[in-house]
Amino acid sequence: MNVGWSLLAVIVLLLIPWIGVGVLGLDSLFGIVIPYACFLVFIIGLIYKMIYWAKSPQPFKIPTTCGQQKSLSWIKHSRLESPFTTWEVVLRMFFEIVFFRSLFRNLRAELQGRRLIYGSAKWLWLGAILFHWSFFIILLRHLRLFTNPVPEIIQGLDFMDSFLQTLGVPPVYITDVLIIAGLTFLLLRRLVDPKVSYLSHGSDYFPLFLILSIAITGVLMRYAIKVDIYGVKHLTLGLVTLKPTIPDVKIGTIFYIHIFLVSVLAAYFPFSKLCHMVGVFFSPTRNMANNNRYVRHVNPWDYPVKYTTYCEWQERFRDLLEQAGLPIDDEWCKEQQQTQKTQ
């Protein structure tokens, strides 16, 4: 059910620009207005999300740990698994974001007869890293259509990505192959594995289908149903220089399908699970140090409590204390007052 609806939604999204540009000829709507609008939704939506998250108080320190915390000096502590300083937290976040370290620990539970067996399962990590890194490189590589002159580093990246020149003209991008492989794995995993399938919703399938269709339209546009890329760069360069124009030469409808799907992805980003792109930085189980015993974490919604110090209490009951013959500690109270003054 979830799969069917998500697929249907993506097919409808495919048909909108197909009819809009192919039949009705609304080039400037799909080439200029929608991309701008969706880009603004993406930027403003994610900033709104970030501010919203930053406003929510963090009552406790709740880092997830999976290693020995810093304790006595002769006990070796696990710096990445149970970070103690901010620097260790930064390192941990870096390895999490760049190498998906926690996914590398992914386990698979299976019943063999009556025994529950846990085993290592690195496939999810591999699929995820293939997909995310390819997506990131593809995003950077697209700068060749948005800059003029193209920075050397982007030219180099493009050259490296397309260095396999044996598979035809134009040369195949390695990331094109890898992103489709990664996405196919991530999709099949949800479809084939009953345990994962059980907890997959439309909001899991829809982005997969959407990104897969973006990748496929991109690949088709490069290798099969080709478009005039010179004309395409006229349009894309117009968009980023804020002087949008629709080029005189007619660009194929597949280009408008591609850019429309990308626009939909951008607009969908802040309101879906995809916002984990910025959310990962706000994840309190990852971005806090496990140093509760050294640094006091003040709950931000704590209100000031009226309390009585020992010295105030002693002053109040001085007479009674003296009558009962109990010791009065004036020296200590003076010291306290002095230390408070100096602070």
Partner: peptide, 28 residues
């Protein structure tokens, strides 16, 4: 807003990264 000293630079980096094509073309 909590941790503004980290969140605001984060937001600025986010905006700069996604509007990079505009800055990369700027002046050249």
């Amino acid at each position: 807003m909590y941790n503004a000293n980290k969140v605001i630079p984060g937001i600025i980096i986010f905006i700069l990264f996604f509007t990079a094509p505009i800055w990369l073309n700027f002046g050249r």
